[in-house]
Write a protein that binds this DNA or RNA. Structure first.
Length: 205
DNA sequence: TGAGCGATTAAA
DNA sequence: TTAATCGCTCAT
């Protein structure tokens, strides 16, 4: 049932990948998380993206091939997990913002950044997701197709997807700041800033 | 070498 | 809504 996602899954527009990652499962060692919230950082023209200033040592993985990991340190404290999308050289990725703990509660409980039993199951916020998976910037640049590393599995399709603006990007140009690049599982209670999200309308084909 | 800053978090 | 926070990035 849980099938490893292939590179073709990631080699698409970050917007599409961000939406499709909702409900998918991150596996790192004994810990498995079901993704409930994501954000797309589409390309260097996106003024909210770390790729905006051009190629740097830190963002090198984001410019690399799809299906690789970009982890960086935020506020000097929190590690944030991204999955690189689009084609190599595009400079796009999806930020994993929230997740539900599926497996490995004992281990996650012992890890830094997770204090209470409630926080163990409710990984709302990108810093907590990374802490639960025990990922730090040293992991940045790794591939998700290498066994034993961070794996991304397909999951049950979600009933309804929510969409809305990204969090913490007030520094960006208004158009990017307000762009509906954040997605979430409407059926999960592990979602941040829910009131700013609306049901995603799917157009008939 | 260091000034500036941040894709957050928790508490109120 | 607000404040704490601190290691890292990148341009000198």
């Amino acid at each position: 049932m849980t099938e490893l996602l292939r590179q073709s899954f990631f080699a698409r527009d970050a917007l599409v990948v961000a939406r499709d990652l909702i409900g998918c499962v991150l596996v790192h060692g004994e810990v498995a998380l079901r993704i409930t919230e994501t954000e797309a950082y589409r390309h260097p023209h996106d003024t909210a993206s770390h790729c905006r200033p051009g190629f740097t040592a830190r963002t090198a993985p984001m410019w690399g091939p799809p299906g690789h990991v970009y982890v960086y340190l935020c506020y000097g404290i929190h590690s944030l997990l991204n999955l690189v999308t689009d084609d190599e050289g595009e400079g796009a990725a999806v930020l994993i913002r929230s997740a539900e703990l599926e497996r490995g509660a004992e281990i996650v409980h012992a890890r830094r950044g997770v204090r209470s039993a409630d926080e163990v199951a409710l990984l709302a916020g990108p810093g907590k997701v990374c802490a639960a998976l025990a990922l730090d910037p040293g992991f940045s640049g790794r591939s998700v197709f290498v066994p034993g590393g961070l794996e991304v599995h397909g999951g049950e399709p979600v009933r309804e997807v929510l969409v809305g603006p990204r969090v913490g990007v007030d520094y960006a140009a208004p158009l990017d700041r307000d762009a509906p690049y954040r997605f979430a599982d409407a059926g999960s209670r592990v979602v941040t800033r829910r009131r700013t999200l609306r049901p995603l309308v799917r157009f008939p084909r």
